Simulated assay, not measured.
Amino acid sequence: MPKVPPPVYVVVGLAAQHLLSRGRRPTLVRSVAAGLVAAGSVCLAGGAARAFKHKDTTFNPLEPERATAVVTDGPYRFTRNPMYVGMAGLLAAHAIFRGGLLSFVPVAAFVAVVDRTQIPAEEQALSWSFGEAYDSYRAATPRWLGTRR
């Protein structure tokens, strides 16, 4: 299991975006667009956290084996990883706000790292813990948005 909590990657990504877009001033249009993307991202991640709380299960990404239920409602109907989609959305919102194409590099890096390290380890633990219930959910619901895997 990876030992770095995904929010740490977000903080590193935000810092990298700041360095990559130094000296750029946000426009009104970018500010509004970034605010809308950020609001949607917070709602998505918040809905995911509420769904976990409703099922009374852990959402600690470093200890998926402590999960007591497969959560399939709320945002989990559309993606198996709404918290990670929300985190990527916050990085995308910050990239929009900062401006410049280089600001999107940390967004891509976050998605790649989480997709290749964190999510596979979580999925393995959940499959082991919940068997067919999780495997069926995984087969029917995309990992991110609009993609099956």
Rank of each mutant, 00 (worst) to 15 (best):
A15S: 07
T141I: 13
H18F: 12
W144G: 08
T57M: 00
A51V: 07
S127F: 05
Q17C: 05
L91N: 01
Q17S: 01
R148Q: 03
S129P: 12
V114T: 12
V32W: 13
N60G: 13
H94E: 07
G100N: 04
G89I: 15
V32C: 00
L101C: 08
E65R: 15
A67L: 08
P5Y: 02
A125Q: 11
V114G: 03
P6E: 02
S41L: 10
G13C: 10
V113N: 02
L101S: 14
A95C: 09
F52G: 04
E123H: 06
T79L: 09
Y84V: 07
R148D: 09
R22F: 06
R77E: 00
Q124E: 15
R80T: 13
G46I: 08
A112K: 13
G99A: 03
A140R: 15
A93M: 14
F97V: 00
L62S: 03
F104H: 02
F130A: 03
S103G: 15
A140F: 04
P75C: 10
P75T: 13
V70E: 01
Y84L: 02
Q124N: 12
G146D: 11
R25H: 03
V71C: 00
V10W: 11
Y134T: 04
A33M: 03
V32E: 06
T79E: 05
A15M: 14
